[in-house]
Design a protein around this nucleic acid. Structure first.
Ligand SMILES: [Mn+2]
Ligand SMILES: [Mn+2]
Ligand SMILES: [Zn+2]
Ligand SMILES: [Zn+2]
Lengths: 144, 144
DNA sequence: AAGAAATTGAAAATCAATATCAATTAGGAA
DNA sequence: TTCCTAATTGATATTGATTTTCAATTTCTT
């Protein structure tokens, strides 16, 4: 977390941007743990500490983090979610019932995706793979 | 196309829904060829034939087709796109420059996805896989 | 032909996200 | 420190896509 914040500060300096009480709070809450948060959820958390944080400021801060490569924006449907950026690419399993998100990496799939692109003469830039289903707990529920 | 329309009529009867001039036109334009159309694009086409079609009616008709399994809704970013439903599941390659959409099926990837779900004890319901990049033509352009 | 229920188009409402703007704040220069 | 300017903030308005509302019209069954 410290290195992430110093990377951000470096970015701010370079771009002539400023460090503010609100920005610092939002960033430090965001980096507390690796999760996939909506703007709304992060806003809720920072407001527990500073009542007056504006809605737009959270949007702006997450955009800033995304732009400087410290956060990834995910569009799973509904509101966008943001997570800490990671060294390795990963994809997601999403529970249709409770919303649980599980991350996975699968090199074999990635290789096959590259093959598909080659076959179709596409230069692959990025991809989105989301597996939707029911997590163990929720699947159990459905069978009473 | 005929069978699709008779399937739709069957669905309408069952649900006590009606066949209208507008609905029929929108449906027949939609089924003319297999494409991935936005509401806007389909509206444009039907308005060449009937000026007065309202855009809410196109939304409503595409929702109807989706609900009765005759259309798939795709969310590639920006406005939603709709395509004819197909027997076999397929995924998409999307050109970031010209928007070209190429369909593909890859059983090996599907198998691996199922494996990932098993490993994580998820019951897989559906998935989304979109490969974004540059088609041959557009990749060429970028290297002048 | 009559009547009930569905449908239509226009306009308003919704939802997530972005832009606007006056007031405030940060941080480098003096 | 104090000044100054540019960046930032929060509230609010706006946007873009989609859905809803509603009065007028149409369909379809009797
Ligand atoms: Mn993740
Ligand atoms: Mn398709
Ligand atoms: Zn679950
Ligand atoms: Zn292209």
């Amino acid at each position: 977390m410290e290195d992430k914040i110093s990377l951000l500060n470096k970015h701010l300096k370079e771009k002539g941007l400023k460090s503010t009480r609100q920005r610092d709070l939002i960033v430090s809450e965001f980096f507390k743990r690796h999760q996939h948060l909506t703007v709304e959820e992060l806003l809720e958390r920072v407001r527990k500490i500073d009542q007056g944080i504006g809605y737009a400021t959270v949007y702006r801060t997450l955009r800033l983090l995304t732009e400087c490569g410290l956060a990834f924006k995910r569009e799973f449907g509904g509101s966008a979610r943001f997570e800490h950026s990671t060294d390795h690419h990963h994809d997601h399993l999403i529970c249709l019932d409770c919303g649980k998100i599980v991350e996975f990496e699968n090199d074999r799939i990635e290789k096959l995706q590259a093959e598909v692109c080659q076959k179709n003469r596409f230069k692959l830039i990025n991809h989105k793979m989301e597996l939707y289903g029911y997590c163990e707990k929720c699947h159990g529920k459905h069978h009473e």
